[in-house]
Design a protein around this nucleic acid. Structure first.
Lengths: 138, 138
DNA sequence: TCCTTTGGGTATCCAATGGATACCAGGTGC
DNA sequence: GCACCTGGTATCCATTGGATACCCAAAGGA
C-alpha cells in the first residue's frame, strides 16, 4: 500500500486482501500471466481425461489452431504442468499428459468449472438485460 | 463424441469428463471466453476488497491501461459480475463493486488463488529446469 | 516410379487485440 | 484565461492469433 489514497471499506477484505494483486510479482498474477488465455485451461481439462495425442487433442478442443495448440502445449510443458513424450513409431507419435503438478492445478480449478456449469445461465441473462437497456437508451 | 477415434484411458475420467469442452457451447468454455484474459480476474480480486473508484482501481491493478480497464469493466458489468454507480460529485465520481453473482465467482476462484500462492515456486522451478535443458541441447 | 497419405509440427501472411499517448467534457480554484 | 480534476474516447502502432501452406520421412497404391 504505497500510499493511503485508496480507502477499502471492509466488506470481505479479510478473505481477499492477501496476495497484493497490484504488484506485478504476486503469485496469482504470475499464474494468470501463464494460463489466463483462451486455450490453456481447455487443454488442461481435456488432458485431465487421460494422455492424448496431438491430433486427437486438436479435434477435442474445438476451434484451436495447430499453431496455438503447439504453442500452448509448449508453454504448459515449460511450466511443468504437462509432459510430452515422443514414441518412435512411423510416423512419429507424440503423447501429452498432465503432470502431478498439473493435476493439482486442475483440482483447484474444479470449483470454477462447477460455477460455470451452474451460474452461466445467470451471466447470459445479465448480458441480455444489459443489451436490452442499452438499446432502450438509444 | 462424434466418433470413436480417440481413446481416453480412464485415469480421473469420472471427475473431468463432464462439460464436453470440445463443444464451443459448453459452460466452462463460455466462462473462459469472458474472463480468461489478462485483467478480468485481477480486477475482480481487487473489487472483492470493496467498492472502489476508477482511478484508484487503475492504481491498484499495476500495469493496466485506461483503455483495457474501462473495456474490461464494461464487459464485467455486462456479464452481471460488477456494478457501476455514478455519484454526481464534482468532478463526477464512478464507483465499481462486485455484485452478489460476482462474489460467488470469486469464491469459486479462491482455490485457484490459493494454488498460485503455494505452487508457483514449483512452476518457476520447472521453467528454469526446462530452459536449462533447452540451452544444454543447443 | 511417382503420387498420396499420415502425424506432428513450422513458416508465412493478414486481421484483430492491446498498450501508449493524446484528447475531451465541464466544473472549479488561481 | 489557465491549469487541474475524474472518467473516460480516439488514434496509432506493436504484438498476438488464425488460416493456410509447407516440411519431413516412411508406407502404400497405381
Amino acid at each position: 500500500m504505497q500510499d493511503g489514497t485508496f480507502h477499502t471499506p471492509g466488506h470481505r477484505q479479510e478473505t481477499w486482501a492477501r496476495g497484493d494483486v497490484f504488484a506485478a510479482n504476486c503469485p496469482t498474477r504470475q499464474l494468470l500471466d501463464r494460463i489466463a488465455d483462451k486455450w490453456s485451461t481447455l487443454i488442461l481439462i481435456v488432458l485431465g481425461e487421460g494422455p492424448i495425442r496431438f491430433n486427437a487433442l486438436k479435434q477435442r478442443v474445438d476451434g484451436v489452431s495447430q499453431k496455438m495448440l503447439s504453442q500452448t502445449l509448449k508453454s504448459l510443458e515449460r511450466d511443468g504442468l504437462v509432459s510430452r513424450s515422443v514414441v518412435a513409431t512411423v510416423p512419429v507419435s507424440v503423447t501429452y499428459a498432465v503432470t502431478p503438478l498439473g493435476c493439482t492445478l486442475m483440482a483447484a480449478m474444479q470449483s470454477m468449472i462447477d460455477w460455470a456449469e451452474t451460474q452461466m445461465p445467470q451471466v447470459a441473462a445479465a448480458q441480455t438485460a444489459y443489451d436490452q437497456r442499452s438499446s432502450d437508451a438509444h
